[in-house]
């Protein structure tokens, strides 16, 4: 009798609300606790010195440059690919859709290992010898990041195109646009918020990418040392203060990315 009173009517509403808000609070405390423990662990003088050290500045620059290049390539490929899968029906579409999801669910280290094995094949070695070197090189970081984030970019862009009524493009066609002109003059402007959001999320994911990068490009200081690799190298040498400083940089980058994303969400984009 008592139990049913707690779970039904106004009391039930209160109980349900308390349970859901409680779960949310627990999660917020968990993540806030991690960040606060990092901030309290970091000593300001060591943090400042580490942040402006040549090695960390190199890692920040390398991460930003490689993530930007990988994101740009991903978005350029993801836009037409996502459009095709969103607006075209073809045999085997479900299989293609599943293949595109694989990089999202497969562990990045497995992807990196797969790439490494590919560059040990005749074709891979041909590319290494005659096109450009990827293994243990900066180009390898970009390739590893691209492999991990491209599927995410396609998925995000597909959901953006799915949410745009094809009717807009059709009206564009009746107003004199060819299929391609209608895409550039109508669909792409309508996809702008989704496109920016996809770019921010994939860029942030690329900056934080570690598994595939370290497997393909290695972890060489001042060469292939991105921010996550810098954390790995610092922990490997038991330099915890330095690791904490780099983690704080990564968190700062993520916070800026997420706030930008939230601003876009405020102007109409939802993910």
């Amino acid at each position: 009798m008592k139990k049913s009173r707690v779970l039904k009517g106004i009391e039930g509403e209160k109980t349900f609300r308390a349970a859901t808000v409680g779960a949310l609070a627990l999660l917020v405390f968990f993540f806030a606790g991690i960040v606060v423990s990092l901030l309290t662990y970091a000593k300001p003088d060591i943090l400042g010195a580490t942040l402006f050290s040549r090695e960390i500045l190199f890692a920040i620059k390398l991460s930003v440059v490689t993530a930007t290049v990988a994101t740009t390539i991903s978005i350029i490929i993801a836009i037409p690919a996502a459009y095709a899968i969103s607006r075209t029906d073809f045999p085997g579409k479900n299989i293609v859709d599943t293949i595109l999801d694989l990089p999202i669910v497969i562990s990045p280290i497995a992807l990196g290992a797969a790439l490494l094995i590919f560059f040990n094949t005749a074709l891979g070695q041909g590319i290494e010898s005659h096109v450009t070197r990827f293994v243990f090189e900066v180009a390898g970081i970009i390739l590893a990041q691209f492999t991990v984030i491209c599927a995410l970019a396609v998925r995000l862009m597909k959901s953006t195109f799915d949410s745009i009524d094809p009717r807009y493009e059709q009206v564009g066609r009746t107003l004199g646009c060819s299929k391609m002109r209608a895409f550039f003059r109508v669909t792409l402007p309508l996809a702008k918020n989704g496109l920016v959001a996809a770019a921010i999320l994939t860029w942030a994911r690329a900056v934080g990418e570690f598994g595939a990068t370290v497997t393909l490009a290695g972890a060489t200081a001042f060469k292939t040392e991105t921010l996550p690799v810098a954390i790995f190298l610092s922990l490997a040498t038991a330099d915890v203060e330095k690791a904490v400083a780099v983690i704080i940089v990564l968190i700062a980058i993520s916070v800026v990315a997420l706030f930008t994303l939230r601003r876009i969400s405020g102007t109409g984009y939802r993910i």
């Binding site: 009524d165 009717r167 807009y168 059709q170 009206v171 066609r173 009746t174 004199g176």
Partner: peptide, 14 residues
């Protein structure tokens, strides 16, 4: 469609 000289107003105006 762009070659047909059509004016089109869809239901939701688009």
């Amino acid at each position: 469609p762009e070659e047909r000289g059509i004016g089109y107003v869809p239901q939701d105006y688009a």
